[in-house]
Design a protein around this nucleic acid. Structure first.
Lengths: 116, 116
DNA sequence: GCACTGTATCGATGAATGTCGATGGACAGT
DNA sequence: ACTGTCCATCGACATTCATCGATACAGTGC
């Protein structure tokens, strides 16, 4: 088969390593975690994520996301891709529409890492 | 007195608003949260935070942080300032040395916000 | 006062990133 | 096929940011 890539699934759960407060982080672990946190650290993405999370079935179509955040369609598409690659959302296309669904495990992974 | 500023204390606890998944985030809340998360979303800062967190009394002197992260002293100082302004660390000067201490409540606030 | 050490600030620079308009590709209806 | 809609990618631009060397500031000891 050629390229059945379908974005990237982190198959999240725990993020990568022991909780932040237990032991010093190595360089590569820190870089990986920074990528994940950077995906969250943007106002537009936080809003998109919260809108998806509080939608029916924690799922929303792109067309329903553009107006609420007040950004252009390409920009919204870009942010959704970032969130998806970080594992916080998953994408499924139904007809002409693309639906993005919350992946609670990814959030849980971050929480677990930051927990005391 | 002229400027007794002493950085900025968030006197953290909960971050600012309802958990991410409960209701759509407003623009200003999202911006505030993004600033907080951006402070975490950097490899060097994650490493610094984890080193401080796993030190005796969850506290460390700048001089003990420079070598482990392998960055210049001004850069380390910059990152510590960012973490302090975000409320994750507090600073206290004792003699010539500056000690940075973990503020667990700030981490707890983020955790609370991301929790399901 | 003077030298020394530990930190913070300043200014510069290169890299990363958020944003948009324009374009392309996929699908539905006529 | 043609048209229209929904969405992703591309290229460009402006801004932000991580990093460093140089410098300034504060405290200690002589």
């Amino acid at each position: 088969m050629p390229t059945m890539l379908e974005v990237t699934d982190v198959s999240a759960g725990s993020v990568c390593c022991a909780p932040l407060v237990t032991e010093p982080l190595g360089q590569t672990d820190a870089e990986q975690l920074a990528v994940t946190l950077k995906a969250l650290a943007d106002p537009a993405r936080l809003r998109l994520l919260s809108i998806v999370a509080s939608s029916e079935g924690q799922e929303a179509c792109v067309c329903d996301l553009i107006e609420p955040v007040g950004l252009s369609q390409p920009t919204v598409s870009h942010h959704l891709k970032v969130l998806t690659e970080a594992g916080f959302l998953s994408r499924s296309k139904r007809g002409t529409w693309a639906y993005y669904r919350l992946q609670p495990a990814a959030l849980a992974g971050v929480t677990e890492f930051l927990a005391i």
